[in-house]
Design a protein around this nucleic acid. Structure first.
Length: 829
RNA sequence: GCGAGAGUGGCGGAAUUGGCAGACGCACUAGACUUAGGAUCUAGCGGGUAACCCGUGGGGGUUCGAGUCCCCCCUCUCGCACCA
């Protein structure tokens, strides 16, 4: 055994052993409880970063721990391999995306292996593999046939830099989630997945995801954005038809003094025809359309509008009210038109003040009477209905209910529910993605590629000009084909799928990655799914995590899955921060995992990232902290080396007879540490405190060993303590733990060793330290035997000389005792 | 603006149920060993010179007892942001 801790010499050895023994290979075993642990798979960008190291270190602790607890653990890894950076590399450096991707994968796979993560590598795949995306194409076709995938012309988010469309979820604060370019709009024929068909279920099932952070559930709830209200019909005055509006505040209908339309509304230009407003409206619409949607979405723009010349009838008041265009009304939400109640909606209030429109108070707050001319802002809370005909005097919540019913009785409208969630736009005008398996035939129209002709293979030989437009659209060999129905000429769809589609079902594919006749082997999927623990960054709260939930439900309805939710428990780990900012290339504050592994070893990298903060919090990078982690492992190594000879022939015994009191305390500490580490892992994944208490145990063990353990009992206990440390540390630092374990002459490897149990009996202290307070302040401590009664403890506490000093001349009012922990003596006055 | 979370030594963080605030680690200080120390070991390490007092963003409250519970305020981070 080397005297110095040299991780490089041992880490490779253990990684080889794990690989040769296929230590982490798993299959279905109905006799064992299964545990599916998954970390979000990486995009093969080139090399792993600290975020990956952290994510996968957290996962590996859980995987190894669960195996030790007797679970059959599925812990796979793969590659989210389609995506823009590969294509950009092709444009910028002339490397084919496939080559770039596979080279990156090879390098990163090697890095992950060097970290010692316990994956079942036999299940590895890349989503750019034909054997993967072919099944995605099958799903697409099945979804198309069920109306869950459809094509429509629509206004979409367009990223000029990425030269492609973005889904709503992929626009963050008006910017592209990937490159931060400001997002514009385009009118395009686009493929969509009908996520809205599952809006209600996606919302409802959030309540069942009790293993998810509340924050993520809230974000998804807000994203889905359910609004319960009513659609109300406002008939036009002087022309046929009506404007239908959606509102959640039908209780304010008597205060609706005008209507507002989005400038994109189909009637926007039609209504003013023949009125004097015609020219004004046209000018307004053109001016507004120039303001990008992105800007309108992010900044509060001054409210502006213009009268259309048209009027509608408020069905409740029978009043003729004007129809305006307003720049703040969104065409994409509701019906693109709203009833304006200035007194009770802030936007309408501002608008009405600006254009001098009537403000009518119809909801009065409890015990107050609002007057329109005195109001400085809208009153948007609930209250009591006023000036509302037969509904006056009703609480507004009840009024909402009654008005909604009344609407339906009268045929003036209906109850309605709207969602903010839109359908998922999945067309991408780029090359490096899964081709959408659709054909266009002049005579037969649009039709799916027959299943027998799948996959539609992404061709290799393409030109990467970077001039925009998909390379596939310039490749007649690809898109020219024949119609499977009539045999005539047909063209293929040249858009590819959003890469979030791949990550929406990869977790299911891991259950049967070798299945080559169908996407999923239902028996194996049934055994492994759902994922018991999923781990990844919070940044996917409403991207990947929402899409994957949708896809799971869709695949369930297509008969491929038998579950409602893919991820039972979710852990969102914090970011890695250095010098006050997220580690990123652009900030120039990255720490390279390769450097870390080379210099300190994988175990140190793992230990530091796990020790520095609990997983859900941000991790503040500290080079000194890394040194500290390395120093701890070095000390452990040295300790084992120094005592190795003395311990080699000794059987570990945590409870040898006749232990002197000092060593009995050590024995108790071993049990306490086992309990603490177990609880910290089991209950809340707080690895930092788990590691801290193993360090404490090691400190105590070092002290005990130094202070004489020459006896046989002492040696047995030292050995037992050291072994406990190695077993407890194994999930965190598996290489060094394995090496030291082996160096003690143990034949069975740590992979075969179960997680230690602690004994409740051994936790019992024979003496108790009781804190004594006077008036709530700590004034002394007493030691009593473990079987002392409350009365005895109280007597002893009162008798304590120091306490006596505080009692001089005062009388004791009462004594409060926390059994076996604390006595508080409360004095008079 | 709305919603969520956080604020504890010089730093990262602990205190899981209202019961010894600061575990563990880093940094720092002193000493030992040493040709040397950016190695290792030992000791110290919230503040106030001290019995003792003060101390968990600030102010109030509940309680025998509050980092922890309640009310008000401040600051920071994240998410959403004209969604009718």
């Amino acid at each position: 055994m080397e005297e110095r801790y040299q991780p490089k010499k041992i880490e490779g050895k253990w990684q080889r052993i794990w690989e040769e023994n296929e230590s982490f290979r798993v299959g279905e075993d109905p006799k064992l409880p299964k545990y599916y642990l998954l970390e979000m798979f990486p995009y093969p960008s080139g090399r792993i970063h600290m975020g990956h190291v952290r994510n996968y270190s957290i996962g590996d602790v859980i995987a190894r721990y669960k195996r030790m607890r007797g679970y059959n653990v599925l812990h796979p890894m793969g590659w989210d391999a389609f995506g823009l950076p590969a294509e950009n590399a092709a444009i910028e450096r002339g490397i084919h995306p496939a080559k770039w991707t596979s080279e990156n994968i090879a390098y990163m796979r090697d890095q992950l292996k060097k970290m010692g993560f316990s994956y079942d590598w036999r299940r590895e795949f890349a989503t750019s593999d034909e054997s993967y995306y072919r099944w995605e194409q099958l799903f697409f076709i099945e979804m198309f046939q069920r109306g869950l995938a459809y094509k429509k012309l629509s206004t979409v988010n367009w990223c000029e830099r990425c030269q492609t469309v973005l889904a709503n979820e992929q626009v963050e604060g008006g910017r592209c989630w990937r490159c931060e370019e400001e997002v514009g709009v385009r009118e395009l024929e686009q493929w969509f997945f009908r996520t809205t068909a599952y809006a209600e279920e996606l919302l409802r099932d959030l309540d069942r995801l009790t293993g998810w952070p509340e924050k993520v559930r809230t974000m998804q709830r807000n994203w889905i954005g359910k609004s319960v209200g009513a659609e109300i019909i406002f008939p036009f005055v002087g022309r046929d038809g009506s404007l239908n509006v959606f509102t959640t505040r039908q209780d304010t209908i008597y205060g609706a003094t005008f209507l507002s339309l989005a400038v994109e509304h189909p009637l926007a230009l039609e209504l003013p025809q023949g009125t004097s407003q015609q020219g004004i409206v046209r000018g307004f619409v053109e001016r507004m359309k120039k303001v990008s949607q992105a800007r309108r979405g992010t900044e509060e723009v001054e409210k502006e509008g213009v009268f259309t010349g048209a009027y509608c009838l408020n069905p409740f008041t029978q009043e003729k009210i004007p129809v305006y265009l307003a720049n703040f009304v969104l065409m994409e939400y509701g019906t693109g038109s709203v009833m304006a109640v200035p007194a009770h909606d802030q936007r309408d209030f501002e608008f009405a003040r600006k254009y001098d429109l009537p403000i009518r108070v119809v909801i009065q707050p409890q015990g107050q009477t609002l007057k329109p001319e005195e109001m400085t802002e809208a009153y948007v809370e609930d209250g009591v209905m006023a000036a509302s005909g037969p509904f006056s005097g009703l609480p507004s919540a009840e009024g909402r209910e009654q008005i909604a019913n009344y609407l339906e009785e009268k045929g003036w409208g209906k109850k309605d529910i709207r969602y903010r969630l839109r359908d998922w736009g999945i067309s991408r005008q780029r090359y490096w993605g899964a081709p959408i398996p659709i054909l266009y035939c002049d005579s037969c129209g649009m039709l799916p590629v027959p299943e027998s002709e799948l996959p539609v293979i992404l061709p290799r030989d393409v030109e990467f000009s970077g001039e925009g437009g998909s390379p596939l659209a310039k490749l007649p060999e690809f898109f020219l084909t024949t119609c499977p129905k009539c045999g005539g000429p047909a063209e293929r769809e040249t858009d590819t799928m959003d890469t979030f589609v791949e990550s929406s079902w990869y977790f299911a594919r891991y259950a049967s990655p070798d299945e080559d006749r169908r996407p999923l082997d239902k028996a194996r999927v049934a055994y492994w799914l759902p994922v018991d623990q999923y781990i990844g960054g919070i940044e996917h709260a409403v991207l990947h995590l929402l899409y994957a939930r949708f896809f799971t439900k869709a695949l369930r309805d297509l008969g491929w899955l038998k579950l409602d939710e893919p991820f039972t428990n979710l852990l969102t780990q914090g970011m890695v921060i250095k010098d006050g900012a997220k580690m990123s290339k652009s900030k120039g504050n990255v720490v390279d995992p390769d450097f870390l592994i080379e210099r300190y070893g994988a175990d140190t990298a793992r230990l530091f990232t796990l020790f520095a903060a609990p997983p859900e919090k941000d991790l503040d990078w500290s080079d000194h902290g890394v040194e500290g982690a390395h120093r701890f492992l070095s000390r452990l190594w040295r300790f084992a080396g120094q005592h190795r000879q003395a311990l080699l022939g000794v059987a570990p015994d945590l409870d040898p007879p006749g232990l002197p009191p000092g060593l009995a305390a050590l024995r108790r500490l071993v049990h306490r540490t086992i309990k603490k580490v177990t609880d910290d892992i089991e209950e809340r994944f707080h690895f930092n405190t788990a590691i801290a208490c193993v360090m404490e145990l090691f400190n105590a063990l070092s002290l005990a060993a130094r202070e004489g353990s020459a006896t046989a009992e002492g040696a047995s206990l030292i050995r037992a303590g050291l072994e406990a440390i190695l077993v407890l540390l194994y999930p965190f630092v598996p290489h060094v733990a394995s090496e030291l374990w082996e160096s003690l002459g143990n034949r069975r490897s740590l992979e075969e060793i179960p997680w230690p149990e602690y004994s409740a009996e051994a936790l019992q202290e024979e003496a108790l330290l009781i804190v004594v307070q006077v008036d709530g302040r700590v004034r002394g401590k007493i030691t009593v035997s473990a079987d002392a009664s409350d009365e005895q403890i109280e007597t002893e506490a009162l008798a304590h000389p120091k306490i006596q000093g505080y009692l001089q001349g005062k009388s004791v009012r009462r004594v409060i005792q926390v059994p076996r922990r604390l006595v508080n003596i409360v004095l008079e006055g």
